[in-house]
């Protein structure tokens, strides 16, 4: 598997570290139902058998965290984005 780092170009998967699902969002700790929301955030996953948005870090490269959209049945990668851009877009949507 090879991942096209937006900053470094396509590199072998062995340069990257995996974290997991990029669709879960850290809840507001001050909300009244914060604990159940955190339990869901930390533990529950859709784990789809198809397109999966997931976090990888170019750990042996530029250190960038990336949001990779990948089909987990075929391992075919559709899209690679910088995590900070996705996060920024997501928080501006939320506002």
């Amino acid at each position: 598997m090879r991942i096209a780092c937006p900053f470094c170009g396509p590199r072998g998967v062995d340069e990257f570290a995996y974290l997991g699902d990029a669709t879960v969002k850290r809840p507001n700790a001050d909300a009244p139902d914060a604990l159940p929301a955190f339990v869901e955030y930390v533990y529950l996953r859709d784990n789809p058998a198809g397109l999966h948005r997931e976090l990888w870090q170019h750990a042996l490269g530029c250190q960038s965290w990336l949001v990779v959209t990948r089909n987990v049945r075929t391992h075919v990668i559709d899209q690679v984005e910088a995590a900070r851009d996705v996060a920024a877009a997501r928080s501006s949507e939320a506002e």
């Binding site: 974290l19 976090l55 960038s64 965290w65 995590a83 900070r84 996060a87 920024a88 928080s91």
Partner: peptide, 8 residues
Amino acid sequence: LCKQWLWP
């Protein structure tokens, strides 16, 4: 991760 993803 905290910087780039949680608190960009």
